[in-house]
Amino acid sequence: MSQQEFDHIQMSIPAKPEYVGVVRLTVSGIANRIGFSYDDIEDMKIAVAEACTNVVNHAYQDEGTMNVSFFLYEDRMEIIIADRGQSFDVDTIRNNLGPIDSNKPIVDLKEGGLGLFLISTLMDKVEINDESGIVLMMTKFLRGDEVEHHVDRITTAQPKQ
């Protein structure tokens, strides 16, 4: 697994229902750009919408902020969604994350557990930290056989000659 990070995109947006679609569009655009299949992009859009909706519905009494970060690698995309408006260092977050157990009965999961169960079935890897607010990291691996080998997955526009 490649550890070289290509790009990091971060958004800080109001935790309001009308902004969930903005995050969905963002994940769709980024995932399309680096070569994910249509089905994987749809899965990521649903998972991200579920995670953002959990923040909107459960994180705040009044208004708050959610941070969404996209970490792009050669072989995967990691999406981190955090509530409480906290900024975070990804290495610290990774050290404190733990897996979501999709084998647990749904009734044993915390509030919003059905959404977490759905997220864990749509993404390749899901980890969570709930010590101060919720930090959810979702990973989707880019399957090389679905991308043409001669196509750069992260490209810059080249003028046609």
Rank of each mutant, 00 (worst) to 15 (best):
R143S: 04
L116W: 05
L116V: 02
M137K: 15
H8N: 01
P17S: 10
G64L: 08
D62P: 00
M123P: 14
I34T: 07
E148P: 02
D145T: 09
A49M: 14
H8V: 01
L142K: 11
S37V: 03
M77L: 15
L72Y: 04
V48I: 14
G133N: 05
K140F: 02
Q161W: 14
S28L: 13
D62A: 03
D75P: 08
I81H: 11
I128N: 03
I30E: 05
H150Y: 07
D108K: 09
G144M: 10
I100M: 11
S37E: 09
G113D: 03
E63K: 06
M11E: 15
H150D: 12
L116I: 01
R33Y: 10
M11A: 13
V48E: 10
L142H: 06
F70H: 08
Q61C: 00
I34P: 01
I154M: 10
Q86L: 11
L118V: 13
M11W: 13
D108L: 10
Q3A: 14
D101V: 05
E131D: 03
F6T: 08
D108A: 09
K110Y: 11
D62I: 00
L118I: 14
Q61D: 06
G98F: 02
L114Y: 11
L109D: 01
F71A: 01
K110V: 15
L116C: 03
G133P: 07
Y60D: 03
I134E: 05
L25S: 12
I154G: 01
L122K: 14
E63C: 06
M123W: 12
N96L: 11
K140P: 01
E131Y: 00
N32R: 15
I134S: 08
R94L: 12
H150V: 08
N57Q: 04
T121W: 06
N67I: 02
D152F: 14
L25W: 03
E111C: 00
D75Q: 12
G85M: 05
I34H: 03
V151W: 13
S37Y: 02
L142A: 06
M77D: 11
L72I: 15
V147C: 05
F117S: 06
G64N: 10
Q61M: 02
V107N: 13
N32E: 15
D89V: 08
Y38I: 07
H150W: 06
A51M: 01
S2N: 02
T53K: 13
S37I: 04
M66S: 02
G115H: 11
E146C: 02
M66P: 04
Y38R: 07
V151D: 14
D145Y: 12
N96Y: 09
E42P: 00
K45M: 15
Y38G: 05
R24G: 06
F70K: 05
I13T: 14
T121I: 07
L109K: 00
D152Q: 15
M66G: 01
